[in-house]
């Protein structure tokens, strides 16, 4: 393993120092990333967070039109309640705070504890669980939160920026999650700085289907095939769970080690699949947005848009990781 780090123990702190140095629009205090200008009175505050290693998620989405604060934990380890409590208090502009929580046991527990402990702030929370690779049954921890987190953060962020009340922001955030599905495929494992070797071994001939964003092995191993076939596997899984129709927001997301060129190759196949189902790619994102350290692979996330969601998606956003309209 070769990584651009100083030590495995300092990697999260060092990276946050780099973020602070690169983005004057951010302030970082006690391992929480804030908008430099602080809370806006009357605006619902948006707080998210989770293990580090998914950059730009979440810290890269702090800024106008998206998050007010992000709580990065250690690598693949959800943040602790203290961080979330700090963030929640700090971003409250009097209109309450929405916690955007990816559905992992650790994230859920730590956000819940924080929400219980924080005082004098109205807190609502939305659970993101978009990964169709996981069966949503009594026999699992439920579906994982992956790519749809970005959609939820963007759209809820736009709504909060418009001054919508907490209940409304939470409701729409939940709606985005309900209308979104993801599926991911790994060509290689990631390597965590502490472990120093790949989380799983994957021969040259195989891929892992249905991976999450923490280097967990997927639901099954399959032979490596063409981009067209891999995109087809991901799209069938999504389409099978949520039939595609109408206007879609489509993200082809890299897992961190996959170059943009390959993501565009996948996007072409995804777009062809969508067309084949009579649906339409209305908005799209192609790039490394919700990553898993240095893993090679991709995920597709699709949200069924309506006019209201499209308008909120198009609204201005100004963060290190996502920016348009200003």
């Amino acid at each position: 393993m070769k990584k651009l780090i100083n030590t495995a123990d300092s990697v999260v702190e060092d990276a946050l120092n780099g973020m602070a140095a690169a983005h004057p629009s951010l302030r970082i205090r006690d391992q929480v990333v804030y908008r430099a200008e602080g809370p806006r009175p009357g605006k619902v505050g948006l707080v998210s967070g989770g293990g580090s290693g998914h950059e730009p998620l979440h810290a890269g989405f702090v800024g106008y039109g998206m998050l007010d604060a992000a709580c990065p934990g250690e690598i693949f380890t959800s943040p602790v309640p203290d961080q979330i409590i700090d963030a929640t208090k700090a971003v409250d502009g009097g209109a309450g705070v929405l916690h955007i929580v990816k559905n992992y046991t650790g994230d859920v527990l730590n956000f819940e504890m924080a929400a219980e402990l924080v005082e004098d702030v109205e807190v609502a929370s939305v659970l993101v669980d978009d990964d169709v690779a996981v069966q949503d049954s009594l026999y699992t921890a439920g579906r994982r939160g992956t790519g749809a987190t970005l959609f939820v953060e963007k759209i809820a962020g736009a709504l909060a920026e418009e001054g919508a009340p907490l209940g409304e922001v939470a409701r729409v955030a939940g709606e985005v999650d309900e209308r979104s599905r993801s599926f991911g495929i790994a060509l290689t494992s990631c390597t965590t700085p502490h472990a120093g070797k790949p989380t799983f071994d994957l021969p040259e001939t195989d891929v892992e289907l249905g991976i999450g964003i923490h280097g967990e092995p997927g639901r099954r191993r399959a032979p490596m095939v063409s981009a067209r076939e891999l995109a087809g596997i991901a799209m069938e899984a999504i389409h099978g769970d949520m039939p595609l129709h109408g206007d879609l927001l489509v993200m082809v997301n890299g897992m961190g080690g996959t170059p943009l060129m390959e993501l565009y190759v996948v996007f072409a196949e995804v777009a062809a699949f969508v067309k084949g189902k009579g649906a339409r790619v209305s908005r799209s994102l192609v790039g490394n947005y919700v990553t898993s350290l240095d893993m090679q692979g991709f995920s597709v996330t699709i949200c069924l848009l309506d006019d209201a969601l499209t308008r909120l998606w198009d609204a201005p956003v100004e963060t290190p990781g996502l920016r348009w309209g200003r």
């Binding site: 250690e74 690598i75 380890t77 965590t192 989380t199 280097g215 967990e216």
Partner: peptide, 19 residues
């Protein structure tokens, strides 16, 4: 512990608990 977690999780349990 981390290796056990690598097999069926996210390879951080040993680090987490040690910390």
């Amino acid at each position: 512990l981390t290796e056990l977690d690598a097999a069926i999780g996210d390879a951080d349990h040993g680090t987490n608990l040690d910390r």
